[in-house]
């Protein structure tokens, strides 16, 4: 059994202030978490704002280095990646999907340029790709998310709906054939009628492409709907973890119970 992602007793402390008024904030305290390579899954990370969810995501993506512990991806310590080539190889395997698609794309730049640039960057590792190869790769990624290149080509972000734009962002993340997506609140800015289409897309990506997804959210209902495992975080610590359905059907920790009770249920039956 090999591990795709091994988060080993990781902690992150931010320090604030100058020499005399130094304060430190422990955003993440001692978290361990494993995702197996052979068993793709959707892992939900749930917690209130300020619980360290996004810091954990940044460490998985290698954007923040842990102050304690190690993040191993495919057996390699993320903190030890130094050279550009190694970093590119790592980034090809782990890709982010951001919260707000309207902020993720430059409003003055055509959306397809992000897709072509991503494809060109990652394909350059194996010789210079031709225009047709790049376009074929981009189109394949777009078809995966239910769009086509013809729909997206030449469009500016404001010409696409929020749902289309978030799908395009996911397609961009799929171009280098990653093994892990880190999605930080990917549906909180998407309209109600399109939210479920993004969530359903995640479960089909897991089933068809064997992709593991770390799904960060504070929406327990969608977490229950799509995820296999769940961890519930509070103040930088994991308070409860396990099979998503079991944890949410029958939460044990007082905080998890409080979270579940706070969910508004649209029940009139």
């Amino acid at each position: 059994m090999s591990l795709l992602l091994d988060i080993d007793h990781v902690g992150k402390t931010f320090t604030q202030g100058g020499l005399l008024s130094r304060r430190s904030i422990e955003a993440v305290k001692d978290i361990s978490l494993q995702i197996e390579a052979e068993r793709p899954e959707i892992l939900s990370v749930v917690g209130e704002s300020g619980s360290g969810k996004s810091t954990l995501a940044a460490m998985v993506l290698g954007q923040q280095l842990p102050t304690r512990g190690r993040v191993l991806f495919d057996g390699v310590d993320v903190a030890s990646i130094r050279s550009g080539a190694d970093r590119r190889a790592f980034m090809a395997k782990v890709q982010p999907v951001l919260q707000n698609p309207f902020e993720a794309f430059n409003p003055l730049k055509r959306v397809d340029r992000y897709l072509f640039a991503t494809a060109a960057n990652f394909m350059a590792a194996t010789g210079k790709p031709t225009r047709q190869e790049i376009e074929a790769r981009v189109d394949r990624a777009l078809v995966e998310v239910g769009l086509t290149l013809a729909e997206v080509r030449g469009r500016f972000p404001h010409e696409l709906s929020g749902g289309q734009l978030q799908r395009t962002a996911i397609a961009r993340a799929l171009i280098p054939d990653p093994r892990l997506l880190v999605a930080d609140e990917p549906v909180s800015m998407v309209d109600a009628s399109l939210r479920m289409s993004i969530v359903n897309l995640f479960s089909s990506l897991r089933d068809r492409l064997g992709l593991s997804i770390i799904y960060i959210t504070h929406d327990l209902a969608t977490a229950y709907y799509i995820s296999d495992r769940i961890i519930i975080m509070k103040k930088g610590e994991v308070v409860e973890r396990g099979n998503a359905r079991e944890v949410l059907d029958n939460p044990q920790h007082p905080y998890s119970i409080a979270l579940k009770n706070a969910v508004l249920t649209p029940d009139f039956a």
Binding site: R195, M196, L220, Y224, Y225, T265, P266, D267
Partner: peptide, 11 residues
């Protein structure tokens, strides 16, 4: 989506 209900939601 609802907790305790896993039927597939159409989009």
């Amino acid at each position: 989506p609802k907790i305790g209900d896993t039927t597939r939601r159409a989009s």
